[in-house]
Nucleic acid binder design. Structure first.
Lengths: 156, 156
DNA sequence: TATTGTTATACTCTATAACTATA
DNA sequence: TATAGTTATAGAGTATAACAATA
């Protein structure tokens, strides 16, 4: 492995990122899901969404890709699509009770992957790594940044 | 963006890794190369290789994928393939003078990408991040680990 | 028969764009 | 005409396997 590649943080980030994603995909596959399914469930776990487009945009999925993901989740009774009576083009999407249970189960799976991947690091190192990655993520994608709330929150 | 995803270091690692790779690919594309070409040049910059297979294995490229990369680099006069007279199946691959110059030029490009991607971090933070990623990389892929040298180095 | 490099094939993913039904 | 959701199509990228030359 060339020294100059190993010396590059961006190279390490790329390699490890793809490796991490592949590990996660394998773990989810054994459970009959993909990380994309988990992403949708996790998002809906924080509240129902009024349109599918908001789900796709929040997770940066393609809207046509989301259709298949929701189809799978709906067939398994984990999410529900309800037409908006006021605008019959729209689908209100929400978790079912089974979906909430499945989400809880997948969280355990995520924890296991996390522990496995970060095994070489101490708890303190993990926190440091997370903080640094979070810093980068916020800069590159504003959706990562925590939303300001309270009296000083932007109102428009 | 769901809180539990943002809280996951593995998720951040995956997202940032793919994002970093895409940025690198775009930057290289404008120069008429890909990060894969750079990887080959960087490896050869540390010395010629006796077979193409050793190049592919070192970089974890598929051997058939490497053929096309070397074709491009050879057409541009950056690398040289010489048949091994003792084993005419083998190709000794090495950098040309032009290849060395091109490699030096691509290094500057890599530096720019690195600076751009890591812009939100201080120099100290960058070093910390690199150290943590390096730790993980070594654990996941022994080829990242520095080779032990000197009297205590493994001899078999 | 095994190995090196090469070429060809098939498959997955993704991105785009077309289509429907509603507004 | 524009939008939400869906479906269909095309392209890139990847992995696999077949192949020719040499050992």
């Amino acid at each position: 492995m060339p020294r100059e590649l190993v010396a590059s943080t961006v190279f390490l980030l790329g390699r490890l990122g793809i490796s991490a994603k592949m590990r996660a995909m394998e773990a989810f596959e054994q459970a009959g899901f993909s990380p994309y399914h988990y992403g949708v469930l996790a998002l809906l776990g924080e509240g129902a969404r009024e349109t599918q487009a908001t789900i796709a945009d929040a997770l940066r999925f393609d809207r046509s890709q989301l259709v298949g993901l929701l189809d799978t989740l709906e067939e398994r009774g984990l999410v529900e699509r309800r037409r908006d009576p006021n605008d019959r083009r729209r689908h209100l999407v929400s978790l079912t009770a089974d979906g909430k249970r499945q989400l809880a189960s997948l969280r355990k799976l995520v924890e296991r992957v996390e522990d496995e991947v970060l095994a070489p690091l101490t708890e303190e190192q993990r926190e440091t790594l997370h903080a640094l990655l979070f810093e980068l993520a916020c800069r590159w994608d504003p959706r990562f940044a925590p939303v300001a709330t309270g009296p000083l929150a932007p109102t428009a």
